[in-house]
């Protein structure tokens, strides 16, 4: 009796996803890098402090310039960076999965434009001056716009990603025009918006984060719950429906998660672009199309990118700083361009 064995040469062209063990190794390496960056973020800056000094500042609080710098600024910005980065990474992965477009970012749902418009109105028309004041406006703006986009993007048969994207771009355009009109005719609003639209994790006291944190946790839970559905939906609506995925519900939950995460991140730190686009996209190159792994990598790599940018922004023009929203593009874009030029990086 002859047995025919089907063999394939390991590493042949058909294999696109690395084996699970390599993915796990990669994830552990990414976590390690994040931990290193967390330490660096608290110690490095215009004045570099030793980890021992940081520990001392936390455990034995006393009055001192370095102590204040650590407790009032370094620590909060590290935590904010971690939280905001994770939120941006996961929301970016979600929108890319939802629209089946690896080049999507949350801006196409109008989240950024909604937040900006709400903050412009708060600052220009209502005279709110304090971040703790207009933070909630930003969150509310993002939520209202997303609900609008969801509504516009629904048909009788449920939500359609294409319609939602169109609606998002449409609403973004109108709101951006309205924001521009407002700021150009109101110099004080213009000034405030200049500062806000740079996107920064500095100067955000921890008291701002605590109220938002539960919402972000809820959103993460939602994201986890739709992971399996998103995996199925990547193969097409019909295949997903055949596998028992409830398309309408999954889409609504996904959009809810995206809004809570991206809205929260923008409300705290202002608009920070590029992180949500680049990190899930690059993660997909490394781990393949499995949504769970993409989330895992995004939730670790995005804060790393954000914290690394923040550290760089602090060091480059010390004692001044460059806001993190400006540096992320300079750190991320060369990496992205370098990766795309590698021969192995193939199409979408």
């Amino acid at each position: 009796m002859t047995t025919t064995t089907i063999t394939g040469t390991p590493g042949s062209g058909a294999a696109t996803a690395p084996e699970p063990s390599r993915r796990m190794l990669g994830l552990l390496a990414a976590v390690a890098a994040l931990l290193v960056l967390l330490v660096l973020s608290v110690t490095v800056g215009g004045t570099t402090m030793s980890p021992a000094a940081v520990w001392d500042a936390l455990v034995n609080p006393s009055d001192g310039f370095d102590q204040f710098a650590i407790r009032d600024f370094r620590l909060p910005r590290t935590i904010v960076g971690l939280v905001v980065g994770a939120a941006l990474g996961v929301s970016g992965a979600l929108i890319q999965a939802l629209t089946r477009n690896p080049l999507a970012d949350t801006g196409i749902l109008g989240v950024g434009a909604g937040s900006s418009f709400a903050v412009t109105v708060a600052v220009g028309v209502l005279g709110v001056r304090d971040i703790s004041g207009y933070m909630w406006f930003a969150y509310a703006g993002a939520l209202v716009v997303t609900v609008m986009v969801l509504a516009l993007g629904s048909t009788r048969r449920g939500q359609s990603p294409v319609l939602m994207v169109l609606a998002g771009v449409c609403v973004s355009a109108v709101l951006t025009g309205a924001s521009s009109a407002l700021t150009l005719t109101n110099p004080e609003a213009f000034d405030q918006m200049r500062g806000w639209s740079a996107g920064s994790i500095m100067g955000r006291p921890l008291e701002l984060i605590w109220p938002v944190l539960p919402l972000l946790v809820v959103a993460l839970v939602l994201a986890l719950s739709v992971t399996a559905s998103l995996n199925a939906m990547a193969l097409g609506d019909d295949v997903a429906a055949a596998q028992g995925v409830r398309l309408g519900l999954s889409r609504v939950l996904t959009v809810a998660a995206i809004t809570l995460l991206a809205g929260g991140a923008t409300a705290i730190a202002g608009p920070i672009g590029f992180v949500g686009l680049m990190v899930p996209h690059v993660a997909r190159w490394f781990v393949g199309p499995h949504q769970g792994w993409i989330f895992a990598y995004s939730i670790v790599l995005a804060p790393s990118l954000l914290l690394a940018s923040d550290i760089l922004g602090r060091v480059v023009i010390a004692p001044g700083e460059i806001p993190v929203g400006i540096v992320t593009a300079f750190v991320g874009a060369p990496v992205l361009i370098g990766l795309v030029r590698r021969k192995k990086a193939s199409g979408l």
Binding site: T47, F65, F68, A69, F73, M202, G203, R314, A318, E321
Partner: peptide, 13 residues
């Protein structure tokens, strides 16, 4: 003239 971060207020001492 120079920009400065709140972290560096100690430099004004």
């Amino acid at each position: 003239s120079a920009p400065m971060s709140f972290e560096q207020i100690g430099k004004l001492a």
